[in-house]
Design a protein around this nucleic acid. Sequence first.
RNA 1: GCCCCAGUGGUGGAAUGGUAGACGCGGCAGACUCAAAAUCUGCUAUCUGCAAGGAUGUGGGGGUUCAAGUCCCUCCUGGGGCACCA
Length: 848
Amino acid sequence: MTSPYNPQITEAKWQKIWAEKECFKAVEDSDRPKYFVMSMFPYPSGRIHMGHVRNYTLSDVVARYKRAQGFNVLHPMGWDAFGLPAENAARDKGVHPSTWTHENIATMRRELDSMGLALDWSREVTTCDPSYYQHQQKLFLDFLKADLVYRKESWVNWDPVDHTVLANEQVIDGKGWRSGAVVEKRKLSQWFLKITDYAEELLNGLKSLDRWPDKVRLMQENWIGKSEGIEFSFQISGGGLPENSKLPVYTTRADTIMGTSFAVLAPEHPYALRLADSHPDIAAFIEDCKKMDTTEASLEKMEKKGIHTPYTVLHPLTGESLPVYIGNFVLYGYGTGAIKSAPAHDQRDFDFATRYGLPIRPVITGSDVKEGEPYAKKGIVINSGPELDGLTSDAAISKVIRMMESKGIGQGRVNFRLRDWGVSRQRYWGCPIPIIHCESCGVVPVPEKDLPVTLPEDVTFDTPGNPLDHHPTWKHVSCPSCGKPARRETDTCDTFVDSSWYYARYCSAKDTTQPVDKNKADYWLPVDQYVGGVEHAILHLLYARFFARALQHTGHISVTEPFTGLFTQGMVCHESYKGADGAWLYPEQVTKNPDGRAVKSADGSPVTVLRGDKMSKSKCNVVDPSKIIAGYGADTARLFMLSDSPPERDLEWTESGIEGGWRYVNRLWKLAEETAERGATETPNEKAAQTQRVIHRTIAQVSDSYERFHFNSAVAKIRELSNALEGLNAQNPSESGILREGVETLTQLIAPMLPHVAEEMWERLGHKTLLIETPWPKANPALLVENSVTIAIQVNGKLRATLTLPRDVQGTEVEAAALAQESVQRALDNKPPKKKIYVPNKVLNIVA
RNA sequence: GCCCCAGUGGUGGAAUGGUAGACGCGGCAGACUCAAAAUCUGCUAUCUGCAAGGAUGUGGGGGUUCAAGUCCCUCCUGGGGCACCA
């Protein structure tokens, strides 16, 4: 008699036991190999969503698998708890950011607990807690001492809705990446971290990250954007410039130097700005560009516009006098803010020259040059004088650099697209920057004994702007250096700072004396496997890599790369439904007819079904994980997350898929129930012996799938094993022993994915010890070798027969057997075989 | 515009250059049932054939190879990233 499987009771039971026995508490142990696996910690927005479930299931499977393999596993969790939504909630609902955040954390903690994750909660970090951010303040001061922090006046992207400054990379299409508000330009004093000091290292380090997706490495490489070129100066005159003025420009295509027919300044270039007073048309153009820049810079069809200036420059090699323009397509922030043109070899220069009737002189040629189009590829130099003509572009680039260097007018230079990281935010809910501004002493770091600088509790959000700035007393302090009245820095840190070192903090999360206990960090770091969304491919991961180098430089940790393995999972998607009126509909508002067409339940009007839409509230296609876990249990939810798609791809949530998972969990339980009391050993019959081979083959295949993150394949192999085991009879003494071996193995193999039901099955099978404490099964090599093999027989590469023959049979025997086959003879059509290729135990191809 | 990734049955997807479609979802048929649900069993790429079998088939076209979903070239479609980056 079998008893039904009840996930609610069983899952709570094992979660309690694991917690009581502190199964997942990680303790440094130099005798055992360590394995550090972590997921990207969540922002406590309120509830967990399916994306979290997928993310944490993946890292949990790795943690449990590695643990069974004998590794000392660290699998921690924390909260990325500072950030703007808490302030927005304060503004909208009148709840304090701290209250809102901690309530969300409590809710999400309960939800995570219900998933049955093998997490070491004793190392929980919460970035908004002074016990975390006081150490971040210490790091800030250390970085300041190490000359990795500086302050500069700069034009910043001001978000008028969030009242905050955005990094360049946080501005998307001229709008704030969070608020969506049109970004304005303002000039503010900002704190910056010198990530550019490590540009070269961050680029080179990518080569060593062989367990990162190529895609992410490539994205980072492009983001860092190294280019090698030359910086040289034009002699510039006119427009009231002093004698011997220089205009430095940067180019990567020195080979096109003889094709240069004009120079262009960025609108913000000082030489451009100084003309504005005397030339109203130029002033107007510059004003225009400012607007374009902030709002529509990324618009595809923006015209290359410019304005002529009274300046002229001298060509550095020919001495020819060339006109100078101000152009809307030249970026002040890149290179020197001015360019030499190569109108025949650059689309932008070409468009500009065409528009303003400037000479276009081809100086590079190639086999695929097209009339009337710029040729931007490298090729062979022409029309450039005896010294350069006939050289390849690369040879010409080196030669031009040498020529200019010897004349003292230019120098080879490496340039990066990467910019320093502005970390100042004019917000309340962030880590206070531990600085005091004194009128006499200037910028004074807060003495370490005075850390942490904590956020004041009594703040109001009824006025826009930074509550720290509005606070009546908080910012007024005396200067630690001279004692006179001074003012606290009211900027707080970008939350990307919080998440740039939490992996190191996990190593000694409760240490009150220092950010990182180096001994412990030396044991655990680097993170062996990091799992998270690809949306963090550039910013978070680059900042964290920079921090590792900065932490190493300031003596906190020893490693250079924080994450040696990275896995980026796909999104969770779900069908969405759009009514005839264009409004999104909830699944329960839609009826699917037998013919496959969907209609609105209320009035029968047609509904468009869209597949593969990311779950989002606005599209009404969100599935709540807590409801799924409450209904089917965490194991079923976890199984669905793993079984239907490879983890790096997007996953389509389907109701039928989750039900398939639920059915399988029940089949497993039934299998354990039926097997539990059996297991007498007797000589296995043929079927049982065959099944035993399947068992051991499955151990090998599933282990391999776990190693390679092919969890969907692991599930498929495991299901094959259960199909085979269901073919055995528990009542038959010649089969029951192998059946039991199979069910035990099966239980172990599914345990990383379905930990609760596996543990329950293990107990039901009569074990007194926990499955979580049981080592991973080993495949018996003797049972991995089949006695007979199926060999494919091809004629001219086409399959004509399959032969089952003893393993390692002679090729000549296979040939003889193959030629005896009628189907082979028919395919040969009396033609004599010309050639035979035999791949032992696999395939014989007869070429006729 | 540039860079990257993907394209396999009705569907999600398997497949170190060696028997394409594992495993699941769905569907069909059957068993159990008064009936339904649940469960179990079988079948399920397409075309052709009574059948045995044959032909076709991994987005299109070409190529390399004894052998291509897999490698190369090219084009198409979809997705992602970057973008006046000189």
